[in-house]
């Protein structure tokens, strides 16, 4: 009998408090902005910042206040844009789907199949691309290419980036084009572009051909064959590097098959 009294006592307090709180919540409820709440629920909630706001709820507030276009959520794509349109009661055109792309596909000249990239020196410091960049422009022989220590892999909220043979590769199916990897990359070799762009020059080296060839077997050497072959005249040479104009390119892939260095890739 001794133990029954305290159990009943505390259970009683629990029930009483529950009733009081429920009544108080109903009586003193503060009406929040319903639209903001609904919008926040529709947004992905990754707080990636691609829309230009600190987090999803801040963006929702801005949409509700009609300060910003409602189609800026890149990770959400078409699905989220439609749902936001339902909440707002008007049609929202989703922004064009975009994906990040790493403009480097480097392979060392001596051992094309090895997992390591050609290195100037052995690096023992902190495992971060930006730290490695403090010493002689990074450990790789190529000044422009991917360092391969994975700053972008670490920051990607969608786990869309992986290192393949020490080069970062973006999985375009997972990528939400939030752009965090662009800011993390010390080499500035990641760019966000339309998912419709299938043909890319996977190289960022602005060095002359001979120098590129001495450190990489897939680097652009500036031979201009792609410029001559392109039926759309969509390729131009800038700083010894071929550049594809996305507006003119029709993804035919002739440049990719004619590139002697295989630095133009078609996905």
């Amino acid at each position: 009998m001794d133990y029954l009294t305290p159990i009943l006592f505390f259970a009683g307090i629990g029930v009483a408090a529950g009733v009081i709180l429920t009544v108080a919540a109903k009586l003193f409820a503060v009406e929040g902005n319903v639209i903001v709440k609904k919008l926040t629920e529709q947004l992905p909630g990754t707080n990636c910042g691609a829309c230009g706001f600190a987090n999803c709820s801040k963006y929702a507030e801005a949409i509700a206040a009609e300060k910003v276009a409602p189609n800026q959520c890149k990770p959400g794509g078409v699905a989220v844009a439609e749902k936001i349109g339902e909440v707002l009661g008007k049609s929202v055109n989703a922004a064009e789907p975009e994906t990040a792309f790493v403009f480097c596909n480097g392979k060392p000249p001596n051992s094309p199949d090895s997992s390591a990239i050609d290195e100037k020196y052995r690096y023992n410091g902190g495992q971060s691309c930006r730290a490695c960049e403090l010493y002689y422009n990074g450990k790789n022989s190529c000044r422009f290419g991917c360092t391969g220590l994975g700053d972008c892999v670490a920051i990607c909220p969608e786990n869309a980036i992986s290192l393949v043979n020490s080069i970062a590769v973006v999985d375009s199916r997972r990528c939400t084009a939030c752009g965090l990897c662009i800011k993390a990359c010390p080499k500035n070799i990641i760019r966000v572009q339309s998912t419709g762009q299938r043909v890319n020059v996977a190289c960022s080296s602005k060095d002359f051909g001979a120098k590129v060839k001495s450190v990489c077997v897939t680097g652009c050497i500036g031979c201009k064959i792609c410029i001559k072959k392109c039926p759309q005249s969509a390729i131009q040479m800038r700083d010894n590097l071929a550049e594809i104009n996305a507006e003119l390119c029709d993804n035919c892939g002739i440049c990719a098959s004619s590139c002697p260095m295989k630095s133009i890739v078609k996905s």
Binding site: G125, G126, S128, R130, A131, L134
Partner: peptide, 12 residues
């Protein structure tokens, strides 16, 4: 720990 190295990055 590479404290000083991170200090340099922080400075940057």
């Amino acid at each position: 720990r590479h404290i000083s190295e991170k200090g340099q990055l922080a400075k940057q």
